[in-house]
Design a binder for these strands. Structure first.
Length: 251
DNA sequence: ATGGCTACGATCCGTAGA
């Protein structure tokens, strides 16, 4: 199974890029974030025409998540109650797939930052339940945390800043401590591997990025993971998302 | 120089993202 995650930053704007990418990358399951579409406006027909089924949980303007899969999506769950559409889970051919779009947190010390940390606590609690009932669990998405300094283009400049601060990293570690592995780090990777680059300041051209999108795997799935990579090709397109897809292969 | 894009829904600027 080829499992991917991609923050598309508006599915309306990026639909054609997504369809092109599905055709070229041939993933079996794709978790999408920042669809920014109400469910009634989700482009289901185009996605089905591409050979995928879908479950979605969206809202106007902000947030929004979806899971696409070639096989049927069963036991669809929307996670813990929250005003933002940030969580979606489904079982696809015996694998439990959780799609997450974690809060950004704006800046250290703000209300949104406090809410982000609280949200990670809720996510941990909810995921521990998922772990208990689904030994084959994958949590894929935009976590909005760079786990370590090697996931940051300029750790000095970002030290203590939102997305890199120690409380955020600790909250992420608590989730990983449930028994999950960062699939990207199961393999030797190029230095300065990132999944997000600022639209400003020629971020992508300078590779001034962060690795904030990843796929966490339970022990059973980690043992079956044969590869994980960032696909930078869509970030090179005209009018790209600011995030690149991450793809994990599971045997 | 703390900005510099982009998307969105509202107007021709504010909010949000990361």
């Amino acid at each position: 199974m080829k499992l991917a995650t991609w923050n598309v930053n508006s599915l309306k704007v990026r639909l054609q890029q997504l369809l092109d990418w599905l055709a070229s990358a041939q993933p079996d399951v794709v978790c999408l974030q920042e669809t920014k579409l109400e469910d009634a406006r989700f482009p289901l027909a185009a996605i089905e025409a591409a050979g995928y089924r879908a479950a979605c949980s969206g809202q106007k303007t902000y947030n929004g998540v979806a899971i696409l899969a070639r096989d049927p999506l069963e036991q669809v769950d929307f996670g813990f109650p929250h005003e933002h559409k940030r969580l979606l889970a489904a079982t696809v051919s015996d694998t439990r797939v959780v799609c997450v779009y974690c809060p950004n947190g704006q800046a250290v010390g703000t209300e949104k930052y406090a809410h982000k940390l609280q949200w990670f606590g809720q996510l941990r609690e909810w995921l521990s339940g998922q772990m208990a009932s689904h030994p084959r669990l994958a949590v894929a998405g935009d976590f909005n945390v760079a786990p370590e300094d090697r996931d940051v283009h300029d750790p000095r400049a970002w030290e203590g800043q939102v997305l890199c601060s120690e409380p955020e990293r600790a909250a992420l570690r608590e989730i990983v401590a449930l028994g999950l592995s960062d699939s990207f780090r199961l393999f030797t990777q190029p230095e300065k591997s990132f999944t997000w680059w600022d639209y400003r300041m020629l971020g992508f051209r300078r590779n001034a990025g962060l690795r904030i999108d990843y796929i966490l795997l339970s022990a059973e799935l980690a043992a079956r993971c044969t590869a994980c990579a960032i696909d930078k090709a869509p970030r090179r397109l005209e009018r790209p998302s600011d995030h690149a897809p991450v793809v994990a292969e599971l045997r």
